[in-house]
Nucleic acid binder design. Sequence first.
DNA 1: TCTTGACCTGGACTCGGTCCATCGTAGGAT
DNA 2: ATCCTACGATGGACCGAGTCCAGGTCAAGA
Lengths: 136, 136
Amino acid sequence: MSDLLERLRGRGWRLTSQRRVVAEVLDGDHVHLTADEVHARAAERLPEISRATVYNTLGEMVLLGEVMEVATDGRAKRYDPNAHRPHQHLVCSRCGTIRDVHPTGDPLADLPAQERFGFTVAAAEVTYRGLCPSCS
Amino acid sequence: MSDLLERLRGRGWRLTSQRRVVAEVLDGDHVHLTADEVHARAAERLPEISRATVYNTLGEMVLLGEVMEVATDGRAKRYDPNAHRPHQHLVCSRCGTIRDVHPTGDPLADLPAQERFGFTVAAAEVTYRGLCPSCS
DNA sequence: TCTTGACCTGGACTCGGTCCATCGTAGGAT
DNA sequence: ATCCTACGATGGACCGAGTCCAGGTCAAGA
């Protein structure tokens, strides 16, 4: 994740303490925080960071392709720093826990041409739903 | 869709004019309206219908399994009356148009046991993204 | 026709997110 | 090391989607 900050610099972006803290909060695998959770954790280290800055920074990282937005329910989006390795998500229908999963096969290959209706299909997202061990 | 009203009656639900109008608005294939769009169309026939009633009625139909909630973006949920035949969705990344599609294969079969982490996996939703003919 | 409890209404409220005027500061220029 | 200035941060107002609630209404059984 520290090279994310280098990449930001490479694009001429200022390396502010706020951006550094947001990047640190998102560091790690299997992290799926909401923007407000990111804000809360960032505020532990930098108490005066604003919600708007967290939203702006997350949005920048999404545009950079460093972070994925995940909208598994109708509620708050979650931010997934594991954007480099393709993966899908397994979501607990009761408690909302999210796991990264790696299905076999390519869902794009399962969509025949006559089912594409002239679209230029670029990606397929799969959300598996079920109950996690502690909810079932 | 008219037998939906019968099924509601069978469950002891009152057959009100509001519920009738919401069911009529949702009638048809390839309909993916937001709750506010349903409200607007329902209000053409029944001007005093309230937003709360539309939300309540849609929620009841979802619980009944007659209508599917579709959350393709972070915006308003859409309501899909084509709940009886399994299908997936193809979404235009620019204009948001949605098409029902029928991929081959079963995405559930593509998730190996060791990728399930003890979850009881019940369903898989696939969202294909791309550009529709008029946006590309 | 009467009764009654389920249903509808409209407005207040919550939550997630965006916008904007203003202030602060990173980092290049000197 | 200091100055400059445009980019970034702030926080409070605002917005859209959805929920809640007290009170009024009405579908349908007796």
